[in-house]
Design a protein around this nucleic acid. Structure first.
Length: 300
DNA sequence: CTTACGGCCTGGGTGC
DNA sequence: TGCACCCAGGCCGTAA
């Protein structure tokens, strides 16, 4: 699933060839994931791509009127959801299944949006719309200092895993990297953020930097159908320590990795390296009969 | 206000 | 071989 490292990889790839290109035409397939398809069709053709940026898991294309007529500025905002892909290819390349948007470029290529489940999102917005849509986002995980990070966690009574996933706190972390970071920091995902001591916060801050930087260097994790802007897979999935490794040995202590639901999300951790917090006030016995299903074997 | 939780989107993998 | 259904992740609305 595209999280920060995957989106960063896509952005870096697009940045190599898109800035300066003009979009000649837009062709749409299914549009239920686009905020205002008509606006996209009306205003994007003729625009020049000024810059390609990332904010958390969002891609932002800064578009300028080629004619330089009005000073109006537009931003094309794209969220890849779970299965979205943005790939450049020759105009004559056959259409992959689930291709929903074609941006025809002035260099003979297409930038295509492919998304089987259409959990992604796309919108053409003004600077005000940009603020509206992305203004709530928290800070970039790779830009936050340890002190700022500590301040973010202070007093928060939610589980640390939930906080890492909260885009208004840190922007860009998803389920894979939350689990990986907590393993490196040796912190149980159910710990309350407010209860983490100084050293735990330091370890977590360090783990976030380490994991995200290494994942970017490996061009992301190709779980599910993630591909970069050239259609190539990432390699970080081979480096996962806990994600989807339930019932396999912990790389540190050989204890079997466990899988459970934390903060409503599928969660993977080492019960030895990441000791559980003092049993919190007995969570409402809502279905104590946790189905401990047989081991599920999963392909990458 | 903060946190918790259920539901929704869709289709591929899994189990029967 | 076929088919029903569970579940993925992010987000939002609502409840506590």
């Amino acid at each position: 699933m595209p999280e920060l490292p995957e989106v960063e990889t896509v952005v870096r790839g697009l940045r190599e060839t898109l800035p300066g290109r003009r979009i000649l035409a837009v062709r749409l397939g299914k549009t239920d994931f686009i905020d205002d398809p008509a606006a996209l069709e009306q205003h994007v053709p003729g625009k020049r791509i000024e810059a390609v940026r990332r904010m958390g898991k969002f891609l932002v294309f800064d578009l300028h009127s080629a004619a330089g007529s009005s000073s109006e500025q537009h931003h094309l905002i794209v969220h890849l959801g779970m299965t979205g892909q943005l790939i450049t290819m020759p105009r004559e390349a056959p259409a992959a299944a689930h291709t929903h948007v074609y941006f025809e470029l002035d260099d003979g290529r297409d930038l295509r949006y492919i998304d089987p489940r259409r959990f992604g999102r796309m919108a053409l917005v003004s600077p005000e719309g940009h603020r509206e849509m992305l203004g709530h986002l928290g800070v970039e995980p790779l830009e936050i200092s340890e002190d700022e990070f500590r301040a973010k966690l202070a007093g928060r009574r939610s589980r640390i895993k939930a906080l890492l996933l909260d885009q208004s706190v840190l922007r860009g972390m998803g389920n894979i990297y939350s689990d990986e970071c907590l393993w490196w920091a040796r912190i149980h995902p159910s710990r309350l953020a407010a209860n983490l001591d100084r050293d735990a916060v330091r370890r977590l801050h360090k783990a976030v930097r380490k994991v995200l930087n290494e994942a970017i260097a490996k061009r992301g994790s190709s779980i599910s159908n993630y591909r970069d802007s050239n259609g190539d897979m990432g390699e970080f999935q081979a480096r996962h320590r806990v994600y989807q490794r339930q019932d396999k040995k912990c790389f540190r202590c050989a204890t079997l990795i466990r899988h459970s639901i934390v903060a409503g999300r599928s969660t993977h951790f080492c019960p030895q390296c990441q000791p559980a917090p003092r049993s919190r006030r007995p969570t409402r016995k809502s279905g104590t009969t946790r189905k401990n299903k047989s081991a599920r074997h999963r392909r990458t």
